[in-house]
Every structure is written in C-alpha cells, then in structure tokens.
Design a protein around this nucleic acid. Structure first.
Lengths: 385, 385
DNA sequence: AGCTGTGGTCCGTCGTCAGAT
DNA sequence: GATCTGACGACGGACCACAGC
C-alpha cells in the first residue's frame, strides 16, 4: 500500500508554493522533451537549503520501501525486474542523485580516487591526469587532484595527507621519484591502495610505466645508425626515474656500439635549462654532431643554443628529444623524438587502481608500455669531416 | 580552522588492534582493560573494517566532551585557549583526521570545489587548474576535476552533472564559451555557486578574466608601430571567448590606424592548424609582412609554414602569438607574444568562488587581469620594398 | 558571564534481521 | 522459496538547547 506519497518534497515551511510562474525573466516554458511532468521537484530558490531528493522520495514515488531502492542502487540481485525498472523510472522522474557523502559514510567506499601530480608545466603529467579522469568517470569514480609543488618525500607526504583527509579510495601517484624514495611511499600510504605511474617497476608494488630504458635505447640507436660518433647527452633531473632510466638506456646502447657520450649535460626538463647548459657547453668549445635530449622542451632549448652559434640543425648537429609534444612536429626544424603514450598510461593506471580497490589482496603485475620513435627533420647523418 | 597537519609519524598510531598473541583461543578474560571507560562506541566485533579515530577518541584523550572538540574544529569562539590547545594536541597525538564524508553529510558543506576544464593540451587551462588547486588547498578545500572533451553545451552539462553528483560546494568553469552559450550555464548549474573563468564579463555572473581585448590591441599595436601594413590575422575557434575577444581587440586597434587585415585565417589553437592554414594561404599567393596569431602554438605552426617557403622570420615576415609558453622564448626565432598570467587568474577565480560559497547572496564584480606584451625576436620592421 | 558538559536530533545511505506476501 | 517490507542501528560529525560551575 502506498503510504504518504503526495508532495514528496512538500516540506519547506513558508517558501513560495507554486506561485513562481509569472516571474518576468528567465521562464523558459518548455521543459525539455519529457512530456510526463509527474512530480516536479522544483527547488525554491528563496529557501536556504537545497533539500535534496533522497532515497525515500524515490521509494515513495515508486511505491516501494527505501530498502528496495537501496538494493537497486547497489545492484543487489534480489529485486524483481519489474520493480527495478519502476524504481529506476522514479529516480529519473525525480532527478534523483545519490548523496555521495552519505554513501561514503555509510558504506565503505566513496567512489573517489586521488591523483597526486607533479609537474604541471610538463606535458606528460597533464595528459595522464586527464586520461585518468576520463577513465575514472567511465567507471563511476570521481577524481580529486593534488598538485605537488616540490618533488621531495616531504612534499609528497603532504599531498598524500591531504588526499587521505578527503578519504579517497585509492591514490594514483604521478610523482616519478626513484625507488629509494618511492619505498617510503609505503609508510605514508599505509593501507590505501595506490599505483605508481611511470616509476621504477618494483616487486610488491603496483606500477604502470613506460619503458624508458627502451626509449633511451631507441633514441641512441637512431643516432648511432645515422653514423654519429661524437654524441652529447642532455639528461633530466636525477631524482626522476624517467630521466635516469632514459639515460641508462642511451648509455647501454652506445656502449654496445663501443661508443661513449663525448659530453653529458643535465637540465631540469625546461627549455630554459636546455638552452643554458648547451650554451655553456658550446662556449667551452664542446664539439658534438648529435645531441640526445631527455625531453622535447630541453631539445628546443638546445636547438636554440646551437642555432645561435650559427650552426644548422640537423646539418651540423642532430637533435633528438623525448615525449612528442603536439608542437614538436612544427618546430624549426621539426623535432625527431621518442613518443610516449601518456593517455594510455593514465588509463592503464586507473584500471590497475580500480582493480586494487575492488579486488583487494591481489598483487597485479606491473605493466609496461613501449615508446615509439618519431623520425622527423632534426636528425640526419653527421657532416663529413 | 585548526591546523591538522601532524608531524607525528609515531610508529603506527591509533590503537593497534591489540595484536592477538599466539593462541587465539581461551584466555581473553573479558575483563575491561580500557583505561578510559568513557563511551566505547561498540565497534564491529568481527574486525573487518579499519576503524577510524573519531572525534570521541580525541575528546577522551583531551578529557573534554565531544562538543568541545567539535567547537575547536569549527573555530567556535567560546573555547578557552588552554582547552583548545589541549584538544589540538590530542588530535595530533592520535593522528586524527576529520572524516570528510561525515562532515559533509552533517554540515552543509563538503569543503570541495569542482573544476570543469576544457582543453588539456593547451597550456592555459592546465596552469589555471593547478593554481586553483593550490589556492584551494590553502583555504582548506579539495578539488574535484572534470575534463570536458567536447566544448558544447551538452558536454559541459554532462560535466556539471558529474560534479554535482559529487556534491561539490561550488564550481569553477574553465570552459571559455561565449555569452550565448554561457547563459545556459545558469540553468544547468541551478543553485550551485559558480565562477566563469576567462569568459565574457556579464552582469549578475561571477567572471574572472584576462582582458583579451586589450591583449589583442597590444599585439596589433606592436605590429603596427613596427610599420607593418600588410597584416594577416590568425584567429582561434569562434566558440571561444578568448579567440573572438582577441580578434576584436586586434581589429579595433588596426581600424584606429586605418588598417584592415589583408587576410584572416582561422585555426583550432593547435600548431597543426596554424601550419595548415598558413601553408594554404601562402600557396595561394597571400602576401603579408606580419601575422598575428591567437596563441603561441598556432604561431609556431605558422612560422614553420613561412619558413618552409624559404622566408625568414622576422626579416620577411613578423609573427606574434599569445600566451607565452615556457618554451616560447626558445623557439627559432624566440617568439614575441602577449603573456597571460594564468596562475593569477586561477587563484583569483578560486577566491571569488570561496566568497560566493561562504558569503552567499552577494554579487561580486567581475575582475579582470591585464596581459603584458613580451617582445622577442619574431617581430621586426617590415622588409623594404 | 565566560567556558564546558549533557543529551539530543539530523544528515542520507547501507546492513541486518525478522516477517509478510 | 523467491521477493519484498519495516524497523533499527551504524557511520562521524554538526549544531542546538540547556544546564552547571
């Protein structure tokens, strides 16, 4: 028997009942395409509190108990199909939206993942964040983000603390620290499921990464095959796993061909740093026919520095980068680079995290994506001597 | 609000689960061993869930009532300083973290702001997002982000819906649509406080923007003052407020000097589009000595196209952009551009939103930041004829 | 009067458990 | 025996009224 239905929302003492019709502006008489008005909730805009439609309103509308509504919400098996669809219809009619906070409090999960990001100005982290969000939304999760401003254990710890205060179900760490530092994550993160992105694969940790070592090899191989022998390497910051891993890959391939970098420079990922260190090196008379930069921004800076000395890329010096920014194909000259699929990486990390959250006690293998070489016009055979 | 950042790090705080010694059977005399009897809220006997430290634990530790703890948490005035610090100490000792979900449910606010972002690949939105987050954290709010993948009313509506489902206290819209479209936001957003970022200033709406019109004028003025008369303009997408506003500013200044663009092109912000349309124009024999691009990426593409025809920037053609990417100073040649302070914009928008949330019923004036011209090497006087 | 404790309700949802059909 | 209902107690905290020292 349907109990007190009627004005499911009728509370709100005073308030304007239904008189809001003739207001001068706004209006917009047509109400979308829904021909069945049914029970228009229609918040009073004067009222202070939004007064949400709850599970009880839905129950009343569908003439079921709130418990049944709850079951529908949670995909409980014991609900007759007919009832289920009645409930769903009621939810639609009332524009019901479950209260995330209440669910979170009562149930165990909040359907929220936290993402810790370092490096806003860099292309990769941003792309990953976006694809994580996209994937999360598809899975019914929302994303809380924290940008870490200094890549230290302390800075990360602070960010994690903030995320945990928000009670996220799990955390994705786009903070490419090294194993040593990363091992400390475990203490901080305690019992929260987490995934390390683009970090060093470690046993007992969920890591999703791009094979930077292979990338470093690919870049070096490309340069070596062109015939270069006087090769400079421009590294990224030592604290970054990506940076050292790429470097090692590069060195590894060169060694295999009995080559050694004639020069090793080190920047902070920015074009400014690439420019600066390359300028310095050139000023000191460094001679190289190819430069392997750890990312595209530094490559740009390096090219600029080289060009300022009157040399031509790639005729005099070849330059190769990493990442493949959307602009990289349009630099002058278009930049040869090693492309990373950041979006795939982000999506994969989210899937891994959801696995951890929803199927606890597992130990998923770290997964690794392979980067691809994009040959453009900033590399060529070395000049004849 | 009290500072909950604990530096405690004591090993495993919060009542380790008594670590049942060896034999699980017998013993356990059931003799109440709890030194602080107080209230024992009857935890689940089957230890499935993690059990959190609550306000009650803190109260017990500080020998005060839960009410007092609550007062401390909410900055209620009527708490003696001595008591307050005792409570704070207790919170620190216990590594207490307020349960966001519970606060949200009980109180009205969840201390969460939603950010709707369009344009991941673009520099500006990302920067703004990061600075919003930073500012939010400083104010005790966390940030939930949604990336919109197609800039239509529908796409935005979808994003807003997702944010509202997460029960955010307010929304920052980094979705630079035009007034026409933006007016629809009001329906969608209903009663949620929101701020439009980098959108057209409108009465009755909170808007925080950069004065793109002024930026457009600045760019045009720079070009005009160099003596150019055959000027091409490369616009951004029409749907973007930034794009049209910059364009209008440019036109406005040119008109003032009795000039008209000899050519108007239109791209989608990407370097690829800038390259493409410029190539096409040049192939058709377009002749111009300067090009005003609506952003730096398109400027890069345009420069590339120009350079491929054998012309030199800026000797033959000057190019100016907008934004000032971190790389822009290192392009070949270094790009003259109009710089926008995205970080300031983000921070300002957050402050505005918090105002709206915490002091409802106000109508804050839209605030506007002014961009600055950065003169570098991609612009020069036109070639002598 | 200035501080603190007691006792209570409420927020919206999830679980459980005994019954009803 | 499937499918539901109704009642009640968590969950962790906000906020209110009132009383007490």
């Amino acid at each position: 028997m349907p109990n007190l239905n009627s004005a499911a929302t009728g509370t709100i003492p005073s308030a304007t009942a239904t008189d809001t019709d003739t207001t001068p502006s706004s209006n917009n008489g047509a109400s979308d395409k829904d021909p069945s008005p049914a029970k228009e909730p229609l918040r009073a805009k004067v009222g202070l509190r939004p007064k949400a439609t709850t599970i009880l309103d839905v129950a009343a509308r569908a003439s079921v108990s709130h418990q049944t509504v709850s079951r529908v919400l949670n995909d409980h098996p014991a609900v007759a199909p007919a009832t289920r669809s009645r409930v769903l219809a009621a939810m639609r009619d009332l524009d019901y939206r479950p209260n995330a906070a209440a669910r979170h409090l009562a149930g165990r999960r909040g359907h929220t993942v936290g993402v810790l990001v370092y490096g806003v100005s860099y292309f990769g982290p941003t792309q990953m964040l976006a694809s994580v969000e996209q994937a999360a939304r598809a899975r019914g999760y929302s994303v809380t983000v924290i940008f870490v401003h200094n890549l230290t254990v302390q800075g990360i710890e602070e960010g994690v603390r903030a995320l945990r205060a928000g009670r996220v179900d799990g955390i994705i760490m786009i903070t490419p620290l090294h194993q040593v530092e990363a091992s400390r994550h475990h203490e901080i993160l305690d019992d929260v499921p987490y995934v390390l992105v683009d970090a060093e694969p470690m046993p007992d940790r969920a890591v999703v990464a791009i094979d930077q070592f292979a990338g470093g090899r690919a870049a070096a191989q490309h340069i070596a095959l062109l015939g270069h022998r006087r090769i400079a390497v421009l590294r990224g910051p030592d604290e970054w796993y990506d940076a050292t891993s790429r470097y090692q890959g590069t060195i590894s391939l060169l060694a295999q061909r009995r080559l050694l970098p004639v020069l090793t420079l080190s920047g902070d990922w920015t074009a400014a740093s690439g420019y600066q260190v390359t300028c310095d090196a050139l000023a000191q008379g460094a001679a190289f026919t190819a430069l392997i930069a750890a990312n595209d921004q530094m490559a740009v800076g390096a090219m600029r520095a080289i060009q300022e000395t009157g040399k031509v890329v790639p005729t005099d010096v070849s330059v190769i980068g990493f990442d493949d920014l959307p602009e990289s194909a349009y630099f002058n000259p278009p930049l040869t680079t090693v492309r990373q699929d950041f979006r795939a990486l982000g999506a994969a990390s989210l899937e891994r995290l959801i696995d951890l959250i929803e199927t606890p006690q597992q130990n998923p293998p770290s997964s690794v994506l392979v980067p691809t070489l994009m040959v453009r016009s900033s590399t060529a055979a070395p000049p004849k001597e």
